[in-house]
């Protein structure tokens, strides 16, 4: 069996915000394993320890205790970084550099030169859709452009492992979609991707595996389909009706444009509601089964964690 790409074992990190203040435990016995080819979503609320974990993986911070190995080597072994690409949260870059100078600088850190470097830069500018901004200084970039060029610098070395900290944060829906497409492309290329996020919808679309971290502790880790309840939790019926206020016993109707929407708990209730709609002369447009979503699992985990903290 291949060596896991990332192994985090009983990782603890404590910080002292001020010299005279006591230490605060930010990570508490975190265990994680990321296998080769995984697209792993690391989710958690703000301040849960996601960024600290990523910083330790990138040796920007040092653990208080515990072990972290990447490609089977200690996290602070400089040689492993030749195969890692990293994008920090809300990245800032050298504003005085132009797009091409910027990527050329990072290529230099990987000892890429000449035609090989130029090929890589051209490919990445195309990948992130920024070929026409080669000569533009980074100070003139929008937030979305910074994020895209940030991803380009993370991929300059054609890494085997890509670590991204909140790659979609602060982006508009189009920007988020572009980043999601890039993640899917990386997944298609067989790269191992480890990224943190609190946009559950995107995590669900892109990842096979997730880890949920809350208050520095891993609450759940595993394949998404194993973590989510496969049962149908409810059904959503969308229908049209000529009446202004059709009546479905004890069910609350919502009106969206010309449609009515009603949610029912189980199959018997579904049959009853559909029959009632037909009997009153309505037309059913769609019936959507509703399974547990990652967002619901996440919210439930946060609520449980709060309950445990304040029983």
């Amino acid at each position: 069996m291949a060596t896991p790409v990332i192994v985090v074992d009983k990782l603890v990190k404590e910080f002292r915000s001020d010299f005279w203040k006591p230490k605060v435990r930010v990570l508490d016995c975190v265990d994680l394993v990321v296998e080769q080819g995984d697209v792993f979503g690391f989710v958690g609320p703000n301040g849960s320890g996601k960024t600290t974990t990523l910083k330790i993986l990138m040796s920007l911070n040092h653990p208080t205790s515990g072990e972290v190995h990447i490609f089977g080597k200690p996290y602070d072994d400089v040689s492993i970084k030749a195969d890692i690409g990293f994008l920090p949260e809300n990245p800032y870059f050298y504003e005085y550099l132009k797009t091409e100078e910027f990527l050329s600088f990072y290529a230099g850190l990987f000892k890429l030169h000449g035609k090989e470097k130029q090929r890589r830069i051209d490919y990445l500018l195309e990948l992130v859709g920024m070929e026409s901004f080669r000569g533009l200084q980074l100070r003139k970039y929008s937030r979305g452009m910074l994020q895209r060029i940030g991803i380009a610098q993370a991929l300059i070395n054609n890494p085997k492992l890509v670590i991204l900290d909140e790659p979609q944060s602060g982006l508009d829906p189009i920007g988020r979609r572009e980043i999601r497409d890039i993640l899917l492309r990386l997944k298609g290329e067989g790269k191992t991707v480890f990224f943190s996020s609190h946009i559950m919808h995107d995590v669900e679309l892109v990842c096979e595996k997730i880890g949920i971290i809350i208050q520095g502790r891993i609450r759940e880790v595993g394949r998404i389909e194993e973590l989510l309840d496969p049962k149908i939790l409810s059904y959503e019926i969308v229908f049209r009706h000529d009446l202004q206020e059709p009546r479905l016993d004890n069910l609350t109707l919502r009106r969206i444009g010309n449609d009515f929407v009603v949610e029912v708990k189980d199959e018997p209730q579904l049959h009853k509601a559909v029959r009632s709609i037909f009997e009153q002369g309505g037309r059913v447009s769609s019936i959507l089964p509703h399974r547990e979503t990652l967002e619901e699992l996440f919210v439930q985990q946060v609520a449980e964690s709060k309950q445990e903290a304040n029983p």
């Binding site: 910083k55 990138m58 920090p88 990245p91 800032y92 870059f93 050298y94 990987f110 993370a154 070395n157």
Partner: peptide, 14 residues
């Protein structure tokens, strides 16, 4: 302060 160092230290340099 601007954390540009994050993308430098995460590259294969000491």
């Amino acid at each position: 302060e601007k954390r540009t160092i994050f993308t430098i230290v995460s590259k294969p340099i000491h």
